[in-house]
């Protein structure tokens, strides 16, 4: 469904992605793990068209999207929850969700989708008229995921959903990610430093080091791999 072929991305002179290949099939949960600065977030930003690839190609449902601008890529159904969540601080929770549905015109469906995400995260319903900037970190993550769901994504890209959150909130968020995958049949691509969590949630995983994919396998196999255990799981 989503195919990255030999993708190279640069920040000025810095060669951030050095020819990566990733394939995501419909209905899957994929995890990309790796250390700080490996190029995980860049992979998502390149897929979304924010930091365009210099060489290589990105295909979505057989269509070449390598050089499309970010807003066109969203129109095709690839939505991202970026690192740091990027909630609009001066818009209310409800307005933030509204922005997620920016490209849609189906008012009734938007309303029912909003009820659906309020059902997933009831705390957001209580805070719907509060400014986004006043929410706690965990609530902001919930809002960021909900906002992306309002796009009705075919593929949901999640960048470090566990970053800076309490373990109990992380658990809740991952169980909801799983629920979204199963109930809505949304394909999910997670980037995580928390390898244990990410690989447990995923059907398949990729390991990234210094801008290169070094390993790929099913989530279970990667979890039991000796090298992975040593490098990422601390066992």
């Amino acid at each position: 469904m989503l195919k990255l072929k030999d993708v190279h991305t640069y920040y000025g002179n810095i060669h951030a992605l050095k020819g990566i290949n990733i394939e995501v099939t419909e209905g899957e949960v994929i995890s990309l793990i790796g250390a700080n600065g490996a190029g995980k977030s860049t992979t998502l930003m390149t897929t979304s068209g924010v930091v365009p690839a210099k060489r290589g190609s990105i295909e979505f449902k057989g269509k070449d999207i390598t050089h499309l601008p970010a807003d066109e890529i969203v129109k095709l159904g690839i939505c991202q929850v970026p690192e740091g969540r990027r909630i609009f601080p001066y818009l209310t929770v409800a307005e933030n969700l509204d922005m997620g549905a920016f490209l849609r015109n189906d008012t009734d469906q938007i309303k029912s989708d909003m009820d659906y995400v309020y059902g997933l995260f009831p705390i957001l319903a209580n805070r719907r008229n509060q400014a986004g900037g006043t929410l706690s970190g965990g609530e902001q993550q919930m809002l960021a995921i909900s906002r992306a769901l309002m796009c009705r994504p075919k593929v949901l890209l999640l960048d470090e959903p566990s970053l800076g959150l309490a373990p109990i909130i992380i658990k809740q968020i991952f169980s909801i990610i799983k629920k979204i995958n199963e109930e809505q049949n949304t394909t999910i691509f997670i980037v995580e430093q928390n390898a244990n969590l990410a690989l447990k949630a995923a059907h398949r995983g990729y390991v990234m080091e210094n801008g290169v994919i070094t390993m790929t396998d099913t989530g279970e196999n990667l979890l039991s791999n000796e090298n992975i255990k040593k490098a990422y799981l601390g066992i």
Binding site: S48, D71, K75, E95, D98, L103, R147
Partner: peptide, 19 residues
């Protein structure tokens, strides 16, 4: 709405499909 969102965070606005 697009103007307000863009004023607050241009990258995020683009990630939600705003030109």
């Amino acid at each position: 709405k697009a103007m307000r969102a863009t004023a607050q965070d241009k990258v995020m606005a683009a990630l939600l499909g705003i030109n």
